[in-house]
Design a protein around this nucleic acid. Structure first.
Length: 439
RNA sequence: GGAGAGGUGGCAGAGCGGUCGAAUGCGGCGGUCUUGAAAACCGCAGGGCGCAAGCCCCGUGGGUUCGAAUCCCACCCUCUCCGCCA
């Protein structure tokens, strides 16, 4: 259940084309259609037999009350009849269970169709919607008139004693950096400042969720089965370490019918994020650009369907505000159908410029899932009192992902003498510290 | 982790194996009355599938039975006491 059976029957062509646009196999659409057909036939037959069996069973009680001998031949015959019906029902139910499992499997492999305004194609089709700030060059001229080169963040971090990758590798493994001294405080400052802005200025409700979730929650947001390999699993207790706060926070309202008056519901939550990132290594992932554990503040919204498109723009702007106040140059990229992922209908990536590595770093991803996640999680709302429940739309966006923001900050604010200037908005959170210098 | 109790509709809370999708109270919605409101009274109202008839849902999954909210088993969760512990 993801795109919804009703929509699948109504516009199979559009769903098929959407799958192709996202680089998925459209054959699952037809497989699902065929299974749905079979399921409905079996269900109808089983329902008819059940109705019959219910009537026969009921007559047993009625006749006994009317004076028939419970152990007599009349009752025995009715019982035999009911039993025969029951056997046939059981048979149909077994078949039905198989078909439904297959249908479920097929539906899970049908991607969420992208919005009409999403460019079709691969990476080349991504569109830079807007850019803010001046991307600094790596080669620059220092105050003394001498040329200097901005260094990558791992060199800055190691030199200042605020980032310790080797010891992180020792105590856990590669991709588990240790932040130290002003580095640790910077991490804590960013988390606090992000949350403060979201809560006091943007009206988000702050949430501090569990960092481990059960399988039902992981399935709800689509980590299972799509991204199961990405998660760390606590096998002993059948729990998963969260890859993002999106998982616990969106599941907050799983299996609930919300009040229309309560919408929109908007949460901001900090969690550490754990990702296996199997097979990822090399120049693209040096330093803290791609790690197994990082910190992130996530925004999650539950909206009325008619409001979700506007909510995505709003949400993206909330993340941009943070980058602007940090003084980091960034660009907003509308991701193409092939790049946006399986469950998103529309997605913007925010990329901050890191002059030391001369790259745009993805520090936020803001997406509208429309009713796709809501259907999996049965998150509904009642448009009017007494009206039938309808699916809400869910959205989420990073605001922001810490490790890469730290990388961009260190590389942007480094000085020729090796120190790093602390952006003004963070100073109150760092005890007034204006500059991180070598001890 | 051990012992005990329990999980029923938004909440509280009944429910002899058959007429229970489920009493009752509160809350909700609509109405009568009222200048208005409250009170009182009357009525409506769970979720899913299906065009409909009808079928399914009483923590979850199995089982017994012609028939299970009601009996049996397993698991999950909650509460109380004990143990442990930040």
């Amino acid at each position: 259940m993801s795109v919804g059976l009703a929509r699948l029957r109504e516009e199979p062509d559009r769903i098929r084309q959407s799958a192709i646009d996202k680089g998925e196999d459209p054959a699952v659409v037809d497989a699902a259609l065929a299974l749905d057909e079979r399921r409905r036939r079996l269900l109808g037959e089983a329902d008819r037999l059940r109705a019959e069996r219910n009537a026969v069973s009921k007559s047993v009680g009625e006749r006994i009350r009317a004076g028939a001998d419970p152990n007599g031949p009349e009752i025995a015959q009715i019982r035999a009849e009911a039993r025969a019906l029951g056997d046939r029902i059981a048979e149909l139910e077994r078949e039905l269970a198989t078909v439904e499992a297959e249908l479920e499997e097929a539906l899970l492999r049908i991607p969420n169709p992208a919005d009409p305004d999403v460019p079709v194609g691969g990476p080349e089709a991504n569109v830079v919607v807007r850019t803010w700030g001046e991307p600094l060059p790596r080669r620059a001229v220092g105050p003394d008139g001498q040329p200097w080169e901005r260094r990558p963040h791992w060199e800055i971090g190691a030199a200042l004693g605020i980032l310790d990758e080797p010891r992180g590798a020792k105590i856990t493994g590669s991709g588990f950096p240790v932040y130290r001294a002003a580095g640790a405080r910077l991490e804590r400052a960013l988390i606090n400042w992000f949350l403060d802005v979201h809560v006091s200025e943007h009206g988000f409700v702050e949430v501090w969720p569990p960092a481990l979730v059960n399988a039902a929650s992981a399935r709800g947001t689509g980590q299972i089965p799509d991204k199961e390999e990405q998660m760390y699993v606590v096998t002993r207790d059948e729990l998963y370490l969260v890859p993002t706060a999106e998982v616990p926070v969106t599941n907050l309202h799983r299996d609930e019918i919300l009040d229309a008056a309560d919408l929109p519901i908007r949460y901001a939550a900090y969690t550490p994020c754990f990702r296996r990132e199997a097979g990822a290594a090399g120049a693209e992932t040096r330093g803290i650009l791609r790690v197994h554990q990082f910190d992130k503040v996530e925004m999650v919204c539950f909206e009325k369907p008619e409001d979700s498109a506007a909510a995505l723009e709003w949400l993206t702007a909330r993340a941009e505000v943070l980058l602007q106040r940090l003084g980091l140059a960034y660009r907003v990229v509308l991701m193409s159908t092939g790049e946006m992922g399986f469950v998103q209908a529309k997605k913007y990536d925010l990329e901050a410029w890191a002059p030391g590595v001369e790259r745009w770093l993805e520090v936020s991803s803001c997406s509208n899932f429309r009713d796709y996640q809501a259907r999996r999680m049965a998150i509904r709302y009642r448009p009017e009192p007494g009206a039938k429940p309808e699916l809400v739309h869910t959205l989420n966006g990073s605001g922001l992902a810490l490790a890469r923001v730290v990388a961009a900050l260190l590389e942007t604010y480094q000085e020729p003498d090796g120190s790093v200037v602390v952006p003004g908005v963070l100073r109150p959170y760092m005890g007034g510290l204006e500059r991180i210098a070598a001890a």
